[in-house]
């Protein structure tokens, strides 16, 4: 369970100005729940994720994961980044092995476990490939395998499919859901794509433009194995409802930008 209470965060720009990114954000994520953080770019949704990840110092408010306050990064919270963040100098296998090594998993178990997860994301045969030789979708599969292999209780995903083309993206979304159904984890999924949020998450947290606040929480529940879900009335209505909430914020966020 993740409890976030009254979290605010301020960025300092290089020329010394303070920019409020988050203001008084409170939310609770239940055990094994899949939630989406949705908002226009620059609304601080990634910042919130980085605070939960323990990458940024928490200046005001509190973030607790399973009752323990977050003080830094740790293997209980696995992260998947938009641009994969694979170690380019390690092979796919080497990347997946890295986290297991740091966990102190014995050598023979390590290798077996790594291959299992590589197989699970469908990268069998690419164990010895370097990331630079893989397509975007394959890189993200490798990154997912690396994170899942250390079996984190919480999965933090920062627009993980944002850098992929449309076809790959929808494939990966379906696969992520399938993986989550097989071994449910608490997932916090950051995105600016309304349809993606509605499709994947059980609850969608809509955030306002800068400084980011939680504007609304929308429950969604569909039979997601239905291949025609995207055309179903319930789905389309839900997307419309949330899009209405997001659009104002997106327009606000556009103001005060050069383009």
């Amino acid at each position: 369970m993740i409890q976030i209470e009254g979290v605010s965060h301020t960025y300092r720009t290089t020329d010394g100005r303070d920019i409020p990114a988050l203001e008084g954000v409170s939310l609770e994520v239940r055990e094994r729940e899949f939630i989406a953080l949705l908002g226009p770019s620059g609304c601080g949704k990634s910042t919130l994720l980085y605070l939960i990840g323990g990458f940024l110092p928490i200046a005001s408010g509190s973030v607790r994961v399973h009752g323990t306050p977050v003080t830094g990064p740790g293997p209980d919270r696995g992260v998947v980044f938009q641009h994969f963040a694979l170690f380019p100098w390690k092979t796919v296998l080497g990347n997946v092995l890295y986290g297991l090594e740091k966990l102190g998993v014995p050598r023979d178990v390590r290798e077996k476990r790594a291959r299992e997860f590589i197989d699970m994301v469908g990268l069998t045969g690419f164990e010895e490939s370097y990331p630079s030789h893989l397509s975007g979708g394959m890189k993200q599969r490798a990154a997912l395998a690396r994170t899942l292999a250390i079996d984190p209780k919480v999965l933090l995903m920062d627009e993980p499919f944002g850098a992929l083309d449309a076809q790959t993206r929808s494939l990966m979304q379906a696969e992520l859901l399938a993986i989550w159904h097989r071994s449910p984890k608490t997932v916090i999924f950051v995105t600016h794509d309304v349809q993606e949020a509605v499709y994947l998450a059980q609850r969608v947290f809509v955030m306002s433009a800068r400084p980011g606040k939680i504007k609304a929480v929308v429950e969604t529940s569909f039979e997601r194995s239905d291949p025609h879900i995207f055309k179903s009335k319930a789905f389309v209505d839900k997307v419309d409802e949330i899009w209405g909430l997001v659009r104002d914020e997106a327009m606000k966020a556009q103001k005060g930008r050069p383009f």
Partner: peptide
């Protein structure tokens, strides 16, 4: 060095020296 690489390693349990 990309920030995300450092964060990835940290979230997999690597110490700062690691």
């Amino acid at each position: 060095c990309e920030q995300a690489l450092v964060w990835s390693a940290r979230s997999m349990g690597a110490s700062r020296l690691n």
